[in-house]
């Protein structure tokens, strides 16, 4: 759960023209029609359920897979379900040039790894980062390796707060140690 280096197969969220999809909002990730669901285990099947071309993602993905997405991922609402649906599918991490602010902190608080890599759009455009590649992410040193291509690129290392919350297994556990100080 709290490994600071993980590996997995990647899915690159492209549109029908083969471009990285930007500004994917929380209604595309987890539509507001399903907000009454409060059980994490039941959220997975709705993941990306309103994103054209990716509605079958819950059937395609496997535990440990890593998502590569376009900038401003998770724009829009504050719903935690848009993070929890990926936890439900046991996705390993999400990698993006940038995230919506609320989305990013929701993920941090859930102990779910979200990492930023500014070179991602360029790597995708150049065909160096493709669906099916095996990637290894080092959260603390900030290195990402594309194992099958013997390539690496930088990601922004987790901040102290992010890595502390992540290693504690989420905000609640972190808070319990912190309030005892």
């Amino acid at each position: 759960m709290t490994e600071t280096t993980i590996s997995g197969r990647i899915w690159v969220l492209l549109d029908e023209k083969g471009h990285l999809i930007e500004n994917i909002d929380t209604d595309q990730i987890f539509h507001n029609a399903h907000l009454h669901i409060t059980d994490v285990n039941k959220m997975g099947e709705y993941t990306l359920g309103n994103l054209e071309g990716w509605k079958d993602f819950p059937q395609k993905s496997r535990p440990g897979d890593i998502l590569v997405v376009g900038r401003n991922f998770g724009a829009g609402s504050s719903r935690q379900q848009a993070v929890d649906c990926f936890r439900s599918l046991q996705i390993g991490a999400i990698l993006s040039p940038s995230f919506g602010a609320i989305y990013f902190r929701n993920a941090v608080n859930s102990g779910f790894p979200v990492l930023r890599g500014l070179q991602i759009p360029q790597l995708v455009d150049e065909g160096k980062l493709e669906t099916g590649d095996e990637i290894c992410l080092h959260f603390l040193s900030g290195e990402a390796q594309i194992i099958n291509k013997n390539l690496s690129f930088p990601i922004i290392p987790m901040s102290d707060v992010q890595s502390e919350i992540y290693r504690a297994g989420g905000l609640y556990n972190y808070g319990k140690t912190w309030t005892q100080d």
């Binding site: 504050s78 993070v83 929701n106 905000l171």
Partner: peptide, 14 residues
């Protein structure tokens, strides 16, 4: 600031 339910739960308590 809008926040998710984990943040708000934590804010209720702390």
């Amino acid at each position: 600031q809008g926040m998710g339910d984990v943040d708000i739960t934590f804010a209720f308590k702390t």
